[in-house]
């Protein structure tokens, strides 16, 4: 397997210019969408079938009555344990040799199970193609030695691309620096490959706790429920089965009919 690649989004460097969002649209030929009034500068409120990179504008009320921004360029996390991938019945969603998660548009049949199985609500359904869409990690670019379009376009290096291991080390140093500068809540999200979902191949540096950015604190793989729920269904089956056997069994007492 090739080196695991990653995107590291350092939100402390983001200036909210949305160059990444635009570069993603251009490279991936994603259509324009009607703007959506979200109450903040953020547009759209969430990923869509035409928006794979999305700059979030999180407004923080300050003691003096003003608002401060927390900015975050959000994207598919390319989880090491990906709910979307495990859910896909057609095998359209696959892991590339770089560790990224991609949807083969020629195989997807539009069952939409992945849409409900991503712990981050990333995958979106496209009515025109009838298939599921999400960030491809610029699959065509990385297979030609280039980084993703968003990382290339980012003027502040808020989005960095490279070998996962190198980026994690870099990110950890950056957290130290920020802490020393007084950003006491600076933390990494998804960098730990022993952490939730086996680590995210698109991981983040946040300046506040994940929930501030509307990120789940401890996302879990949806498929974890299958075993227990199936066993409980079997218990249910045995109960109904035994009931029915008894109902049909009492031959001695006649049919029980009126």
């Amino acid at each position: 397997m090739a080196t695991t690649l990653a995107m590291f989004t350092d939100t402390s460097l983001c200036i909210g210019c949305r160059a990444c969002q635009v570069a993603c649209k251009q490279w991936n030929e994603l259509g324009a969408e009607a703007p959506e009034w979200t109450g903040t500068y953020q547009n759209h409120s969430h990923f869509t079938d035409e928006t794979f990179r999305l700059v979030r504008f999180v407004e923080q009320p300050q003691p003096n009555g003003n608002l401060a921004w927390l900015l975050m360029s959000d994207v598919c996390k390319h989880c090491a344990q990906a709910g979307c991938l495990d859910a896909c019945p057609t095998g359209a969603i696959y892991r590339t040799e770089f560790g990224t998660v991609n949807i083969n548009q020629d195989v997807c049949n539009g069952c939409r199970y992945c849409v409900s199985s991503c712990p981050f609500g990333v995958v979106a359904f496209n009515e025109d193609t009838g298939t599921a869409k999400k960030c491809t990690f610029c699959n065509d670019r990385i297979h030609n030695g280039l980084g993703p379009a968003c990382a290339k376009a980012c003027p502040t290096d808020s989005i960095q691309f490279g070998a996962r291991e190198t980026l994690v080390t870099k990110a950890q140093k950056r957290v130290e620096t920020l802490k020393a500068m007084g950003f006491k809540d600076a933390q990494l999200y998804g960098a730990d490959s022993n952490g939730f979902l086996g680590g995210l191949n698109a991981f983040f540096l946040l300046l506040s706790k994940p929930s501030t950015y509307n990120l789940p604190e401890n996302p879990r793989l949806p498929q974890r429920n299958v075993v227990v729920d199936s066993l409980l269904s079997i218990v249910s089956a045995v109960a109904v089965g035994v009931g029915a056997v008894f109902a049909f069994r009492d031959r001695g007492k006649g049919d029980g009919d009126a």
Binding site: D86, A87, C88, P89, T90, G91, A92, V107, C108, N109, G110, C111, R112, Y113, F125, N126, E127, T129, G130, T131, A132, Q223, V226
Partner: peptide, 26 residues
């Protein structure tokens, strides 16, 4: 009929994932 691309329904049988209800269900 509920699929986005009904003609690709046989793709459901391209893989068999025993931990995936949608897959074994088909």
């Amino acid at each position: 009929l509920d699929l986005g691309v009904p003609l690709r329904f046989l793709n459901m049988l391209r893989s068999f994932k025993f931990w995936d209800p949608m897959s074994i269900g088909a």
